[in-house]
Amino acid sequence: MTGKFDNWNDRDIGDVIDAYPMAAIAAHDGDFHMTDMPVLLERNADGRPTALLGHLPRHAPIYPVLNKDSRCLLSFHGPSAYISPAMAGKSDWAPTWNFVVVRIAAEIAFSDELTDEALVRTVAHMEQNEQTPWTIDSLGPRYAKLRSGVIGFRARILSISARFKLGQDESDETFSHILGALKDDALVRWMKRMRDRA
């Protein structure tokens, strides 16, 4: 059964990861291992998430762990903010936290043949809104040296879970009061977007 905070769709997932591609990547081999890297979401023609593309430093402690057991969890954090009673305009209202988080369980496959693709596409994604986008070609001969320290990967998506906790039981008046007090435009947009989801 779909709950109040997990009534999301594929477009919601894609929009979060596109805007907040820095993922916490976690693996386990008796000990917990985690690293943070930018990761891109790949979709099929219908917009359904199919895989994740990224790269890891070869010296990262998580790299040999994932070579032994390819299963991992990637966590993407969207906008978030503490919501105080003052922001709600109600002293008898309990504080809360509004946030967006997407978690993807995946099987990761490393390949040096993916390294260039992962690096070029990641840079292009991050530079897409720049007036004069920077490209990897600008590195010249330095690129080969920097490239040798990382390896590309594609991760097959096993499952997706998400929480879009962007409001609870606020009246329209209280909700509007919170929106007016927030300084995070992205959070405001997401709150408005998810407000009418049943």
Rank of each mutant, 00 (worst) to 15 (best):
residue 20 Y to L: 13
residue 20 Y to P: 02
residue 20 Y to S: 12
residue 21 P to G: 14
residue 22 M to E: 12
residue 23 A to R: 13
residue 24 A to W: 13
residue 24 A to Q: 14
residue 25 I to P: 11
residue 25 I to A: 07
residue 26 A to P: 08
residue 26 A to F: 15
residue 27 A to V: 14
residue 27 A to K: 12
residue 29 D to N: 15
residue 29 D to Q: 15
residue 30 G to V: 14
residue 30 G to I: 14
residue 30 G to Y: 13
residue 31 D to S: 15
residue 32 F to G: 15
residue 33 H to S: 08
residue 35 T to L: 08
residue 35 T to A: 09
residue 36 D to C: 14
residue 36 D to V: 12
residue 36 D to P: 03
residue 38 P to Q: 11
residue 38 P to L: 10
residue 38 P to V: 09
residue 38 P to R: 10
residue 39 V to H: 01
residue 40 L to H: 02
residue 41 L to A: 08
residue 41 L to N: 03
residue 42 E to F: 06
residue 42 E to H: 03
residue 42 E to I: 07
residue 43 R to F: 12
residue 43 R to T: 12
residue 43 R to W: 02
residue 43 R to N: 07
residue 44 N to E: 05
residue 44 N to D: 15
residue 45 A to P: 03
residue 46 D to N: 13
residue 46 D to Y: 10
residue 47 G to V: 10
residue 47 G to P: 06
residue 48 R to G: 03
residue 50 T to W: 01
residue 50 T to C: 01
residue 51 A to Q: 04
residue 51 A to M: 01
residue 52 L to C: 07
residue 53 L to V: 07
residue 53 L to M: 02
residue 54 G to V: 11
residue 54 G to A: 04
residue 54 G to N: 03
residue 54 G to L: 09
residue 55 H to N: 05
residue 55 H to R: 03
residue 56 L to G: 00
residue 56 L to R: 00
residue 57 P to G: 02
residue 57 P to R: 02
residue 58 R to Y: 01
residue 59 H to D: 00
residue 60 A to R: 00
residue 62 I to F: 00
residue 62 I to L: 04
residue 63 Y to M: 05
residue 63 Y to P: 00
residue 63 Y to I: 00
residue 64 P to S: 01
residue 64 P to Y: 01
residue 64 P to R: 05
residue 65 V to L: 02
residue 66 L to N: 07
residue 67 N to K: 13
residue 68 K to M: 02
residue 68 K to I: 00
residue 68 K to L: 03
residue 69 D to K: 05
residue 69 D to L: 04
residue 69 D to M: 01
residue 70 S to E: 09
residue 71 R to E: 10
residue 71 R to F: 09
residue 72 C to H: 08
residue 72 C to G: 06
residue 72 C to Y: 08
residue 72 C to I: 09
residue 73 L to H: 08
residue 73 L to I: 14
residue 76 F to V: 02
residue 79 P to V: 03
residue 80 S to V: 00
residue 81 A to Q: 09
residue 81 A to M: 04
residue 82 Y to S: 08
residue 82 Y to A: 07
residue 84 S to G: 08
residue 84 S to H: 07
residue 85 P to M: 10
residue 86 A to E: 15
residue 86 A to V: 14
residue 86 A to H: 11
residue 87 M to C: 06
residue 88 A to K: 15
residue 88 A to Q: 09
residue 89 G to Y: 08
residue 89 G to E: 01
residue 89 G to K: 08
residue 89 G to F: 04
residue 89 G to W: 07
residue 92 D to G: 00
residue 92 D to I: 11
residue 93 W to R: 07
residue 94 A to E: 11
residue 94 A to I: 15
residue 94 A to H: 11
residue 95 P to E: 06
residue 96 T to D: 01
residue 97 W to L: 02
residue 97 W to E: 04
residue 97 W to Q: 04
residue 97 W to D: 01
residue 98 N to H: 12
residue 99 F to N: 08
residue 101 V to K: 10
residue 101 V to D: 04
residue 102 V to N: 08
residue 103 R to W: 05
residue 105 A to T: 10
residue 105 A to K: 11
residue 106 A to I: 14
residue 106 A to F: 11
residue 107 E to N: 12
residue 109 A to I: 10
residue 109 A to R: 12
residue 109 A to Y: 12
residue 110 F to N: 02
residue 110 F to D: 02
residue 110 F to T: 03
residue 112 D to V: 06
residue 113 E to C: 05
residue 113 E to K: 13
residue 115 T to S: 10
residue 115 T to C: 09
residue 116 D to I: 12
residue 116 D to E: 15
residue 117 E to T: 15
residue 118 A to P: 11
